[in-house]
Design a protein around this nucleic acid. Structure first.
Lengths: 111, 111
DNA sequence: TTAACATATATTGTGTAACATAATATGATG
DNA sequence: CATCATATTATGTTACACAATATATGTTAA
């Protein structure tokens, strides 16, 4: 999948994962990898900065958890603002969809 | 509409306009403006470089036409490659849609 | 057992490309 | 002259890709 097309959408996909349960970065990476299959590969170097941005903006909150190995690792939990962001992204998505309908015809979205 | 979300999609919207009929840059601008309503404002400084890119990649072809005023102006026509690009973008769109379904649930796209 | 290696986890730096914004230029027109 | 139609160019912001690095732990092979 063309990387440009993900711009702006990617964070919401992450939020979608975190909405189910809190996860630490590396686990998010694997989760995305396994679900997104070949369509969506996400290297750590892409994910982590993205997580920092999301936290800086208040959409997720990090906390420390103890791995089975005893090692500390940083995990992330979605916030109310994050949930709200998912919702408002849905609105944006509809706008985008309607733009495509307008410029490329009904057939674009349906079927 | 959040500008990030348009990345990669914008050129296809332009191609959608040009698929109907050839237009010169400024006219494309007005066309987009009038159809895209408030959701999509497009300054010349954004449009023209975009047109150059599209031409460089062979998706549109420019030619000179004479305005009613007698002035020469550059107009653009979509190419076969451009049409093909619209089609393949539709595929990408479906992938994106399915990613959202996967990560945010069925309800994302429908309704 | 120790050395080598792999895996889990996180960080950081650098590059690319799209799009935004704004400034500028020119001819036409009222 | 002011405004409109039309095009160009320069500069900035930001996301995301990619690659390199760091460290702790767990596993395998000599």
């Amino acid at each position: 999948m063309d990387r440009e097309l993900l711009k702006g959408h990617l964070p919401v996909l992450i939020l979608g994962v975190l909405r189910e349960k809190p996860l630490h970065g590396y686990a998010i990476c694997r989760e995305i990898q396994s679900r997104g299959a070949s369509e969506l590969k996400l290297k750590e170097g892409t994910l982590y900065p993205l997580l920092y941005r999301l936290e800086r903006r208040g959409h997720i909150k990090s906390f420390w958890e103890t791995a089975p190995s005893g090692k500390q690792r940083k995990a992330y939990k979605i916030t109310k603002s994050g949930i709200k962001m998912i919702e408002s992204h849905k609105t944006e998505w509809k706008i985008l969809t309607s733009l495509f309908s307008t410029f490329l015809g009904e057939g674009w979205v349906k079927q």
